[in-house]
Write a protein that binds this DNA or RNA. Structure first.
Lengths: 255, 255
DNA sequence: TCCCCGACAATAGTGATATCAATACGTGCG
DNA sequence: CGCACGTATTGATATCACTATTGTCGGGGA
């Protein structure tokens, strides 16, 4: 999207270099930068360096203290819900772990979100779900995976939005990233599995008809399938499934 | 907590004034500040004003553009998971809505987190749960609500940490705020309800014994009770339950 | 006459630099 | 062992030049 605006300013460019490096763990917790060092390394003024540090500080990646410098914070203190940090981690070596934890988060949130949507969504918005589902079926049958992904993302985003809960809605971007990550790593079959499509249809119609329990159960079936598939190919402590070829994984349906 | 560190720097003080005001909706989306205006209003230098704006920008409360100024963003674009923003909203008129949406989020996440804890927690950490639960029972019986709240918070925090999912763990602070908000507004009885305490015990022992389904069900009972109590006293579009006297609400157990 | 488009100028953020103040860490002395 | 002082580093200010954006104005075409 707004890649240009993201790098429009100098401090954003510093951030785009420093943030991912810290997020990737290239600097141990406790590592200390000095502003002067940042100025030299990035060839920027003190003003710019400090602005970058302020943003990093606001996501708790670093703390800045007089006489000490800018100290890297232990990862457990980071603001793990910061969209920018999520993106940085998804772009780095932590991608697998990040996608796994985000997938579990999805699995937790989307079923209740579907239930809430069935309970609270405005009537005029519910039909859009059915429409989306029809488009998904058509695009899936045609084998247009790109278009299908867009529709799948849109479907899940709409559920989260219709839930009427701003915290649920706030995860729309995360869900989009996870879905994109799945297809990117070939965890998606060439043609979406019919069963998964049917489950999406169930969610849509249950929300339309105002049946929270049905919507929740159908959505839970969707996300649980994704989670168990992930666990199955990735026993705790095992290798990173996102870096294995698709054939070794057994593809799963749309989520 | 670190109130001093939060206000240690000038830009943090500007932030502490501007952030809550924007979060409270005192400035309409589209409202424009100029840096010069901020300098004058807060009596700070341009550097400080800019640093504050950078942080606000990183939580997407504002966008800063040349020739335009610093424009307030529509609320639906805000980074609603930013801990600072959550705190600001909890401190303002949006407190009720914020607590409600956070409670629903809790209800979604904590049961799967309990299941994950039962599946993955390190053996040496599980006993601590039982210990905490015993303390809760003792403190609850003694009627020490403050100490009980601390233990309750600690209990739920531990579950989220033992889940082994960093996104779940990242909600520990949120859960603490919600629990504190509940007691603060007298939604808690003088003595915790025995049934709720028993449910907490069930969660603890199920996690200890590695029974994900039991842990999840018990935790779901805990949080569902809270959510339904909340819905019962606050039909959609109704008045704000957090501002009503406790007697009108019917108190509920620890959560 | 109206509308569209390009150029220009006003405006506010962006970036750089110099300088001083405040602070906290470490050392060494009492 | 504790306190004070030196100093390194951030915190804050002032001021400059640069740049991007937008609104406007004028010209030309429909």
């Amino acid at each position: 999207m707004s890649v240009d605006t993201a790098h429009r300013t100098l401090h954003n460019r510093v951030l785009a270099a420093l943030g991912p490096a810290i997020a990737a763990g290239e600097y141990r917790p406790g590592h200390v930068f000095t502003l002067e060092r940042l100025e030299r390394d990035f060839g920027v003024s003190r003003t710019v360096a400090r602005e970058a540090v302020r943003v990093l500080e606001s996501m708790r990646l670093v703390v800045s203290r007089p006489r000490t410098g800018v100290r890297v914070t232990p990862a457990e203190d980071w603001s793990v819900y910061d969209p920018q940090l999520i993106r940085w981690r998804l772009a780095g070596p932590g991608r697998g772990a990040q996608l796994r934890s985000l997938t579990e988060l999805r699995a937790a949130v989307e079923p209740p979100a579907a239930a809430a949507a069935a309970r609270r969504a405005a009537p005029e918005h519910r039909a859009r779900l059915m429409e989306l589902n029809r488009s998904m079926a058509a695009t899936g049958a045609a084998g247009d995976l790109d278009a299908f992904l867009r529709l799948d993302v849109e479907f899940h985003r709409l559920i989260l939005e219709l839930s009427g809960n701003e915290m649920f809605r706030g995860l729309a971007g995360v869900v989009a990233e996870v879905l994109a990550g799945r297809t990117e790593y070939d965890l998606m079959p060439q043609h979406p599995r019919p069963e998964a499509l049917r489950l999406h249809a169930h969610v849509a119609s249950a929300v339309c008809d105002g049946l929270p329990d049905v919507a929740q159960a159908a959505m839970r079936a969707i996300v649980d399938e994704v989670v168990t598939a992930l666990e199955h190919v990735d026993p705790p402590g095992g290798t990173d499934p996102w870096h294995l070829p698709a054939t070794a994984l057994g593809t799963t349906g749309p989520g």
